[in-house]
């Protein structure tokens, strides 16, 4: 994830100012900042000439848009049945142990946010998770340790 600071106006210029542009704009904001702030929502509302409350109502409908700050890496671990059957819980426990956070929380260094999510469409290779946009499958407690380590290293190398 590159932290490019766009202005909401730039995004409206890119995606247009009709209501259809709302989700692409919110997605871009979230992609860039891993949060959609109050101020951003008001600015989007102004650019598209819609109510700020509706921007909020729309954003909160979707699980990939958040009005709370998330970490640099958002981990979404599948909690649906086949991943559950193939060992999601031990993987979750391991994640909780090494990150020292519970689902819904972000590590104090702002690197990782841990979430549980519904089926990721990787059921034949469960347990599965996404880290930002990247799928990781056939997880085991051992493999998630390595995966988290590699993201930590990546973060350090910036």
């Amino acid at each position: 994830m590159t932290r490019i600071q766009y202005s909401v106006t730039d995004m409206a210029n890119k995606h247009g100012r009709s209501r259809e542009a709302l989700l692409p704009i919110l997605q871009d904001i979230y992609q860039a900042k891993h949060v959609i702030s109050d101020e951003d929502m008001v600015n989007v509302a102004r650019e598209l000439d819609i109510s700020a409350a509706h921007v909020y109502g729309t954003a909160t409908f979707y699980s990939f848009l958040e009005t709370q700050q998330s970490g640099k890496y958002i981990i979404r671990l599948c909690k649906t049945i086949t991943c559950m059957m193939h060992g999601k819980n031990p993987v979750l426990q391991e994640l909780e142990r090494i990150l020292k956070i519970k689902p819904g929380q972000t590590t104090p260094d702002g690197l990782f946010t841990l979430k549980e999510t519904n089926c990721l469409g990787q059921c034949h290779k469960g347990p599965a998770m996404l880290v930002n946009d990247n799928p990781h499958t056939q997880l085991t407690p051992e493999s998630v340790r390595e995966i988290i380590d590699s993201y930590r290293r990546e973060a350090l190398s910036y």
Binding site: V42, S51, A53, Y56, T60, T67
Partner: peptide, 20 residues
């Protein structure tokens, strides 16, 4: 045409909200 109220969240959490 005010839009002070909106529907927020979904599923069991769905409710009527103002901005934030």
């Amino acid at each position: 045409g005010v839009g002070a109220l909106t529907v927020s969240h979904k599923g069991s959490e769905m409710k009527i909200s103002t901005f934030m």
